[in-house]
């Protein structure tokens, strides 16, 4: 009897869902269904989350996760194969582009914070990091206080830019010269070519930059965490149907443990175009995955 009821309920649920699915798409999913295209924004130098690989295509941890979501979206709207249009974004362009509807999902290394939630929405947290400083070993910089009298590059529109600027102001650090750059690649090049003494972004990205450097041994990540930065894939605001598809996919990966395979692929093994980062997931991140492994 109970089995029958469950079966009937399940059948009803499936029927209902299918019915709803056929007619009731709205917002992003409707746009995707109508155009047959999903527009994916991606970063170009957030190693190993989203960066341009040796064959000039974006690859990385966030890209892998995004592609899982793209497949789920295709299934949801009932299309066999969605056209995936890739649009490169920078820290400065990503939020306006999600807000103006030009990209449907952003795969990169974006911090989820409450200010940004006024403009955009986020899927579940996929990584946890914070601001640190990358310096040449010879520079003598060991902490944020050592920036006095030195030059540092910061990427426009990043949370790190504000964290470091605030730290400089709050701690009264004197004579810091700030070079404003467009993205991490430009910032690292400024460091590599001795234009600045340090570059600052999330500590995991700093390891990513080192892994691709010509002389990795010359650089070190120093200092305490200046900010707390949980990463999430960015989505359009006020669109819970789209967010549900994304979160269902991510929760599935967290539940099955597949997330750790994807994690290890990008953080523990050599990556295309660079060396292995060798940063284990660690307790915080594994707890994060466990806590967000919502049941079906």
């Amino acid at each position: 009897m109970i089995k029958k009821i469950i079966a009937a309920a399940a059948a009803l649920a499936v029927f209902g869902a299918a019915n709803a699915g056929a007619a009731d798409f709205y917002g992003t999913l409707k746009k995707i269904k109508d155009s047959g295209t999903i527009v994916v924004g991606h970063r170009e130098s957030s190693v190993p989350f989203a960066y341009i690989g040796p064959d000039n295509k974006p690859i990385g941890y966030s890209i892998d996760l995004c592609m899982k979501i793209v497949d789920a979206v295709a299934k949801e709207v009932g299309v066999d194969k969605l056209n995936v249009k890739l649009v490169p974004v920078t820290p400065q362009t990503r939020i306006p582009l999600i807000a103006n509807g030009n990209i449907n999902i952003e795969c990169g290394s974006t911090t989820n914070n409450l200010t940004r939630q006024k403009q955009v929405d986020y899927a579940l947290t996929t990584f946890i990091t914070g601001t640190k400083i990358l310096a040449k070993k010879t520079s003598g910089i060991k902490e944020v206080e050592d920036l006095a009298g030195k030059a540092i590059a910061l990427a426009q529109g990043t949370t790190n830019e504000r964290a470091i600027k605030n730290a400089i102001k709050d701690l009264g650090i004197k004579d810091v010269k700030i070079l404003s750059v467009k993205d991490h690649a430009e910032g690292f090049l400024a460091l590599e070519t001795d234009r600045v003494d340090a570059y600052s972004t999330d500590h995991i990205l700093l390891f990513g930059l080192i892994s691709k450097a010509k002389k990795p041994a010359d650089y070190e990540v120093v200092g305490r965490f200046v900010s707390f930065d949980p990463y999430a894939l960015m989505l359009p605001r006020d669109d819970s149907a789209m967010r549900l598809v994304a979160n269902r996919t991510l929760a599935g990966l967290f539940r099955s443990g597949e997330i750790l395979d994807i994690y290890n692929k990008w953080f523990m093994k050599p990556i295309p175009g660079g060396k292995a980062l060798n940063v284990p997931a660690g307790d915080t991140l594994e707890t994060n995955f466990a806590v967000q492994a919502f049941p079906k």
Partner: peptide, 21 residues
Amino acid sequence: VVGLADFMTSAVTVAQRDSRL
């Protein structure tokens, strides 16, 4: 400036990827 992959953007992408400015 908006990342549209024209000749200039492509050149910059490669330049930064391979640090060959």
